[in-house]
Computed example of a mutant assay.
Amino acid sequence: MVRAITRNPNKKEIKELKLLGAEIVKADLDNEKTLFDAMKDVYGVFLVTDYWEQMDKDKETEQGKRVADISRILDVKHIVFSGLENVKKLTNGKLDVPHFDGKGELEDYFRELGSPMTSVRMPDYFENFLDIFKPVKSDKGYYVLDIPMEGIPLDGMSVRDLGEVVLAILKNPEEHIGKEIGLSTDKLTIDEYAAIMSKHTGKIIKASKVVEVHGRISLLGFMKTVEIIIGTWKIDVDQEDIRKVMENWTLSSKEISGKIIYQALLLSPLHSSVTGTARAEWGYLIPSNYVQEVIINIQTIQI
């Protein structure tokens, strides 16, 4: 029996789960009593915390720790947690990435408690190609896939495939408890992703091209309005820092050669001067302070 926990049992997706045989229980990560009721007499828990709902790392870790504490009291035998690397810890404080670091801190908390936990670390979602990475039509008539990782493979996986992975882990606790598992079902360059999209949509889709420049930018908040002189910014990071961040990921450090700069914010539309809404692409490189003015090496996308 699968018990599905939700704040809103009336949602269409939840009703569909009920038709498939799931037991539906109303609970809230902020309400301890409802969590006790929801987790009582269960063998295992699959936990997903959501930084993006409130964009508050402390709130996310508070919710996750609440589940960890209750699972220990109720003697839950296996927790599968949708975790990520603690980038701040891995880079000795050089990089501060809230939506990664909170999940990394929760992984550490489960370990400190001695909980029977397995962490699954998702790569880029294929579903992002329908949303934040959706190809943008250029003034030249073709579409541009705005992910400036020119030549560097991007690991990806569909969210739909995660359920079977979690089930397999729960069925084999002796093999997986205590481990962090980086997931990926494919690793392609942006050119290769664009070619696949072109083939199946019948549209001309090209990967964006990157040109290295230098400039001064003003960051006025992450995932908020950004005023920027030059379209897209990136930060130079030591090879060792990248290796630490990626060591448990499916992208091997051996594949990272030379001077690699990962994308931190992606603006749309991309022009030489733009005021727009920032969205995260590679959170590893988001700086500690959300509001700051810096002089850095940046790269602009030429459409």
Rank of each mutant, 00 (worst) to 15 (best):
N8C: 05
V2F: 12
V45N: 01
T277M: 10
Q299C: 13
I260V: 14
L19P: 06
D236S: 11
R111N: 08
L219G: 13
G44T: 06
E164T: 04
T189S: 13
V2N: 10
N289E: 15
L29F: 03
E227Y: 05
K77G: 02
G102H: 04
T189A: 01
M157P: 11
T250Q: 15
Q263H: 10
L267Q: 07
F100Y: 15
M157W: 01
K206E: 13
H176K: 06
T61A: 02
D58V: 09
K59M: 07
G221D: 03
D96Q: 07
L266G: 13
A195I: 04
K254G: 09
L183A: 03
A280C: 06
K77D: 03
E150V: 05
G215T: 05
E32K: 06
A27R: 13
I24Y: 04
D155T: 09
M246T: 14
F36P: 13
I301K: 06
G231W: 06
L170N: 00
Y43F: 07
M197H: 05
I14C: 02
T6D: 06
L145P: 15
N86F: 09
V136G: 05
T189L: 06
S198W: 05
D191C: 03
P287F: 00
N92L: 11
D155H: 11
L145H: 03
E13A: 15
K224Q: 09
N297K: 15
L170K: 01
Y125F: 14
I73A: 13
S218K: 15
I24L: 01
D69T: 00
T34L: 06
N86I: 08
K206D: 11
N297P: 15
Y143D: 09
L47H: 00
R111V: 10
L130Y: 12
E62D: 14
T49A: 01
R3H: 02
F126M: 13
